[in-house]
Design a protein around this nucleic acid. Structure first.
Lengths: 251, 251
DNA sequence: CGGGGAATTGAATACGTTCAAAGGCCGTGG
DNA sequence: CCACGGCCTTTGAACGTATTCAATTCCCCG
């Protein structure tokens, strides 16, 4: 069930207005399917329910849970979300993170049932696109389907990049290097790599995701600091030597 | 560049005829986009170039290489393909395997440039759907785009399943258990799990993919044999105790 | 039957985990 | 404003697991 509260939308007519901490619309995964609704045929303006803008989620709240039916797909516009599954032993396994501009819920489009859960790590914001709304628009404007295809093929690309980043990493240093690079790239614009990253998640979440113990992760962070590849202070990480980092990550 | 040779198609009119070792069309990832071409509007019958059926690839040949432009997407109809990337140190990294019925090339649909390479492990066969052809059909039959959307959203689902299978695995036993389960499920029909699997790839390829040394993989295989969870003889693997395997894989 | 690559096994070493303890950060309440 | 407590993070030392290097066995193909 979608647990987060609704909020009257502001800037519905001019969503590009960048709010503090929010990603710009042109950098959002949903932009291709969102723009036609906001600016296209005016007949959609009254169908307010299609797109719910700037929905806040409090830290720790679930965006959706495993087994929930797919009601909406989400674009994260601020904050960080972790994707988790519960293992056969009842433990929580982190299977991914999502950052502003990224899509959530795409794994359920085909089956219409969520196969994992999404939890906000800090206070976050989403734009929610209802699946019903997407279907309606697609039926009315056939050309709109092209935008959906763009969205999905781009998501395929993103997933492959992710998988390629982590497959076959053996030691802790390589895994962490791959993680840092992956996060840096996903928090950057296409041209310039952002070298300072804010890691909203706990060390436990990172360790869990990478298949390491929190102690090993901590030791590996300090190792990367001693070799002057990064600096990290609490949740603020700075990449110092991007070349060495790439080499470590085999990227 | 697409390096494998072309072959005059047989059974073009009745592709369901199941050849030995080939997957049935209804179990193929491309079925949704393939059927409308074969059986739909007869005007497409002459556009033979859209779909190239039963294209053989010899063991060791490349289906495509990193950097190649995307000409076609492929459905593997027999054999096994490995996806590889070359690391910064010039070593080959296996980032995935594909089995009959699965899609190849989807990672390049959005960028139109392949980001990894696909190599046949044994003699394999593909059905090749040209991207140009897909576009043409989509333009002529708007409803066809729905099938493309189905294909892509299903691929998103598959990729998530994959990622979820391997994220956060720490020890060799868990990783291998997850691998065996994943392969078994992908080689099964939806209802019944296939318990005997043929592993066409070498131990080196599996180890490389899982981030283990070949020796460790070998030891872990024998460990799983001693605990009566599997039996393995050369490339023939049998799952004996599926419950224990699931528990190990946290699935 | 012989040769070469692939797979397995053995022993020493390196690396990650475990358990224990200490240090740091931050919100709460005095 | 400072002290306290809880949680997150880091560090240390002993242990267990994976890697490394070497040697052997197995399998396939000529």
């Amino acid at each position: 069930m979608n647990q987060h509260m609704k909020n009257p939308t502001k800037n519905a007519k001019h969503p590009e207005v960048k709010e503090s901490g929010h990603i710009a619309c042109q950098d959002c995964a949903l932009d291709d399917v969102c723009k036609p609704i906001s600016f296209g045929d005016q007949s959609f303006d009254q169908t307010h329910s299609i797109l719910e803008r700037r929905t806040p989620i409090l830290a720790g709240e679930y965006l959706y849970k495993k087994g929930d039916p797919l009601n909406s797909i989400y674009a994260l516009t601020s904050g960080t979300v972790k994707l988790v599954k519960t293992t056969s032993k009842g433990l929580q396994q982190v299977v991914g993170f999502r950052f502003p501009g990224e899509l959530l819920g795409d794994e359920a489009i085909s089956t219409e049932i969520h196969i994992l859960s999404a939890v906000a790590i800090d206070n976050a914001t989403t734009c929610d696109m209802s699946m019903k709304g997407l279907d309606d628009i697609a039926q009315m404007i056939p050309s709109f389907q092209n935008n959906l295809i763009k969205l999905l093929s781009n998501q395929c690309y993103t997933m492959h990049l992710q998988f390629t980043s982590y497959a076959g990493r053996n030691n802790a240093e390589e895994r962490l290097a791959a993680f840092i690079l992956n996060v840096a790239e996903r928090n950057s614009n296409k041209d310039i790599l952002k070298l300072n990253i804010f890691l909203a998640m706990t060390r436990d979440d990172i360790a869990n995701f990478l298949g390491l113990r929190r102690e090993t992760l901590s030791r590996t962070f300090t190792k990367l600091q001693k070799t002057k590849i990064i600096t990290i202070e609490n949740k603020e990480l700075d990449i110092i030597d991007i070349e060495k980092l790439r080499l470590l990550a085999n990227y």
